[in-house]
Design a protein around this nucleic acid. Structure first.
Lengths: 192, 192
DNA sequence: TATTTATACGGAGGATGCCTCCGTTTATCA
DNA sequence: TGATAAACGGAGGCATCCTCCGTATAAATA
């Protein structure tokens, strides 16, 4: 009972799970440093596993990229959950948006990466859009409920604005400008 | 007299010029089909020259990419010149903008390519921005002079809007939507 | 606990691409 | 019609990609 499949299946091997996690961590680091075309063998080396193991878990570069992306999205979503306990709701939202900037900034290749992803499965797009919308909706809703934020901005608007800020910037030294723009935007969201 | 350099220099060899052109054509096709990471050897093969010749003309992938991009920009600029003889100025502008969409659509990797370029020399950015601004200014100016287009839109605004339309679209099947948006925009430009 | 077996592991190896180097070819110039 | 500067082609060394399969090991079973 409670078994998902009809046939009883062995539970996944512990080393498999561990290696998958190691690979994701390594990939995040390697892609951040070397851009999205970085060597997959370098990823395997850093994770301390054979190249075969990498390919078994992620048959293509895109599969690995998707997994990394999902990982990051989940990370941001979890962070929103944590920040929802922050006493000041506006500050919580601001911090979350800043985390977005930092996360994208941390990986030079991410903008190109996002485009690779955009070419890929629309299921992934739907998934990430949904999770991030939910995350930002949570933080936004708290601010609205507290009467501190205007109520006519949807989470989707906010997400799109964020993306727009990322895209509109020149690639060099864009981070400070993006952070400033985010702050301006959050200020604009305040009820007066 | 009339010689650019102090020392008299041989004029460039005919085969060199021809091969350069062949390579640019081949590169345009190969990058359009296979994206910006397509094999440079494939480019040389398609141009019917040795790989060494490719590298002599374009020492790096980026150099080749820049040259292709310049080539396309020049192409669009020339097209604007041609279209300026079209009797209906609004139609001319519309056609030029559509050509932009088609050109970007024709090469799947172009959006990523533009980002590569954005990382690259700002001289190239300046050059292309100038040429395209001039081109669109020509077409726009005719419409304004004929009293058919509103006068408060600058060529820069129009270019930026065009870029915005390209970026905001999802990558799959974006072309029809982009064409529609361009038409809407051109309609909006009309004086009423 | 000992044995079985499904599952995962590592890395050798063939294919392909990158880029350099240099002997050969050829277009220009005298 | 030479002489020669300039360009050509592609072999070769190295890196990466990805597959395949013999070996190792965690979970299941007795």
């Amino acid at each position: 009972m409670g078994q998902e499949t009809v046939k009883t299946r062995r539970k996944p091997r512990a080393d498999s799970l561990r290696n998958r996690e190691l690979l994701l961590e390594a990939a995040t680091h390697v892609f951040s440093t070397g851009g999205p075309q970085a060597s997959l063998e370098a990823v395997a080396r850093r994770a301390g596993v054979g190249i075969g193991t990498l390919y078994r878990h992620f048959p293509t570069r895109e599969a690995l990229f998707e997994a990394v992306y999902r990982h990051e999205v989940d990370h941001l979503a979890d962070l929103a959950g944590l920040l929802s306990f922050e006493p000041d709701p506006v500050e919580a939202l601001r911090q979350w948006l800043h985390a977005n900037v930092r996360l994208v900034a941390a990986k030079k290749g991410m903008i190109q990466g996002l485009q690779l992803v955009a070419h890929g499965s629309s299921e992934l797009k739907a998934y990430s859009f949904e999770r991030l919308t939910e995350a930002v909706g949570l933080l936004l809703g708290r601010g609205v409920a507290a009467g501190e934020l205007r109520a006519d901005i949807t989470p989707e608007d906010l997400l799109r604005t964020l993306l727009g800020i990322f895209y509109s910037q020149g690639t060099a030294d864009w981070q400070p400008a993006a952070l400033r723009l985010v702050d301006v935007f959050v200020d604009g969201l305040r009820k007066r």
